[in-house]
Amino acid sequence: MSTLTLGVSRGHVELLQFFRDRTAMVFTFAFPGMLLLLFGTIFQDSYDEPGVSASHVFSASMIAYGILTTAFVTMGAGLAMDREDGTLKRLHGTPVSATSYVLGKLFLVLALSVAEAVVLIAIGAFVFGMSLPDASHWLTFLWVFLLSVIACSLLGMAVSAIVKHARTAGAILNVPVVALQFISGVFIYPVTQLPSWLINVAAIFPVKWMAQGFRHVFLPDGMRVNEAAGQWELGRVALVLGAWCVIGLVLCLMTFRWSRPDR
């Protein structure tokens, strides 16, 4: 049985289980969508660029939030859960490789992230009247999206290594998720309102670059003046997200354990 075939088989049961667990499904999907509806309705800022409202900015930026939820949190909490309920121990007693297991999780995360992005973009377009981009911008969307999902998934896996109990996983994983969004231009925009040292801290982490990439895709080009550098910096978006994919992979390889550490 090939690693890929078994990975697909894992992905299938991961998806089945996710969609049958109503609570996980509702909270994973509904939370970013609900926040977008609230933020987009409450905040009425306008910008120099005509036709752009705060709701459009939130619609674009919050795709980053969506991916943090579906990739980083789902992966981190899922792995902690699998370690606790015996899933990993069960699989380790079979011919399935760790790679197939992780592939299965990635298929789950990818499917959830696509669905989440569709929900957020649909809210942006149909509720707030955000216009959809042209083909070349969709191409940019594709690579920003993929790099974001991979980086967040791998980092979620790595962080799960320090999570002791599955029930605390959500709480632990949401600390960086919420904190980074405040300093990365997702909740507070333009990010130039923040002290410059805080902007520099945010620039180390992937969230700022994810949100910036998605704003480039969905906002008019003139909006670039509101970014920290006054530019979209697509090259840097690719570089930082790519670097986090590599860091995430190395951390996973270093920390992945089939079983809980010795008593």
Binding site: M1, L6, S9, H12, V13, L16, Q17, R20, D21, D82, D85, G86, T87, K89, R90, G93, T94, P95, V96
Partner: peptide, 28 residues
């Protein structure tokens, strides 16, 4: 090898046949 776990609690949302079929797919 076959390993019968002592305290597993996994795959709670799959059906019995789905889980057995899933694991069967791992073996030659």
């Amino acid at each position: 090898l076959g390993i019968v776990l002592q305290d597993a609690d996994d795959a709670a949302d799959l059906t019995v046949i789905e889980m057995v079929r899933h694991l069967a797919g791992f073996y030659p």
